Computed example of a mutant assay.
Amino acid sequence: MKKRKVKLVVISDVHLGTFGCHAKELLNYLSSIKPEILVLNGDIIDIWQFRKSYFPKTHLKVVQKIISFATKGTKVYYITGNHDEMLRKFSDISMGNFALQDKLVLELEDEKAWIFHGDVFDASVQHAKWIAKLGGFGYDYLILINRFINWCLLKIGKEPYSFSKKIKASVKKAVKHISDFETTATELAIEKRYDYVICGHIHEPKIIRKENKNGSTMYLNSGDWVENLTALEYNRKRWKLYRYSDYNYTEEENFFEMEDLLLSNPLIASLIFSSKNKSL
């Protein structure tokens, strides 16, 4: 496969180690590019929800691919997020082409990019962490159920459906939270004279110019690899929002992938085996 050369790639909210992670798709994407700089902008490994019983080979291959980038000359920055906040005790450590940091400022052709995960602006994370963690578990199970339903929809020729996007769109507080997040990030970026402010955290991919009476900046959000499957790419002063769209799996691959997801969950597995026994 011929790899695309990219100056800078930013990905975030991969959530390796959870049911919702699209590690296979991410691995396909990473295998198709040759970046000079790779920024992992938080929540790459979901330490909050990490379980020994669920870390598939594809998730491990993503980690191996990232290490491979660093060994082959790509500068890799791992920016800590709330789901991998345990790594913050090791912040500012560098090993060869790999650096672990809480935030980052990059010089991009005479322009400055301010990069951080964004959980610092989230009150639920800062002041009620147990609620945020509980919500994370619920979200993971919602994504698991949603993937199973979408698998069924694809089998009958229907379009996939996103429960979480529908819920977010219908809840005014969620919309206001996203708006407040963007406003806070951009106002600080304008105050600090940054040309770009790049975040993750809220799973809302976006590129938009923001202005106020003090100036303007470009707000960018890399989205996630749970629902949106997006990344930010930068080349020659131009930003692009990359969206993964290759869902052409065979029925057999879909079946075994979904079966592994379901049976790796003890509660769902017990329900499946219980229903099978009753039918015998």
Rank of each mutant, 00 (worst) to 15 (best):
G17K: 00
V10Q: 09
L16G: 05
V14G: 05
Y29M: 09
V6E: 15
K7W: 02
G20D: 00
V9F: 10
S12V: 03
L8I: 12
H22N: 14
V10A: 10
L16E: 12
G17A: 11
K5D: 13
L26V: 07
L30V: 14
D13G: 02
R4T: 14
A23Q: 06
K24Q: 14
L8K: 10
E36Q: 13
F19G: 00
R4V: 05
L27R: 05
H15V: 02
P35Q: 10
V14L: 12
C21I: 00
H22I: 00
V10W: 15
K24S: 15
G17C: 01
L26T: 10
L30S: 12
N28Q: 14
L8N: 11
G17S: 08
H22M: 11
R4A: 08
I33W: 05
K7P: 04
G17L: 03
A23R: 04
I33S: 04
K7R: 14
L16C: 09
L8M: 12
S32M: 02
I11K: 05
K5M: 07
S31M: 07
I11S: 09
L16W: 13
H15C: 00
L27M: 03
K34A: 11
L8W: 07
E25D: 09
S12N: 14
R4K: 15
G17I: 04
D13K: 03
V14R: 08
I11G: 07
P35I: 08
K5P: 04
K5N: 15
P35S: 08
S12K: 01
V6A: 08
I33T: 10
H15I: 00
I11P: 10
H22G: 07
N28D: 15
V9Y: 11
R4N: 15
L30I: 13
H15N: 04
S32P: 07
K5G: 09
K34M: 08
K5L: 06
V10F: 15
L26Q: 11
S31H: 11
K34W: 00
L16D: 06
K7Y: 11
I33K: 02
L26W: 05
G17P: 06
H22Q: 14
V10H: 11
I11D: 09
K24H: 12
N28G: 07
G17Y: 12
K7E: 15
P35Y: 04
L8Q: 07
H15W: 03
R4Q: 15
C21A: 15
K24Y: 11
G17Q: 04
H15Q: 07
V9N: 12
L8C: 11
H15K: 02
E25L: 03
E36M: 02
V14F: 07
F19Y: 15
G20S: 00
T18H: 06
G17R: 02
N28W: 10
F19H: 05
L27W: 02
S12L: 00
F19D: 05
K24P: 03
D13S: 04
L16T: 03
T18W: 03
L16S: 05
P35R: 11
L8E: 07
D13M: 02
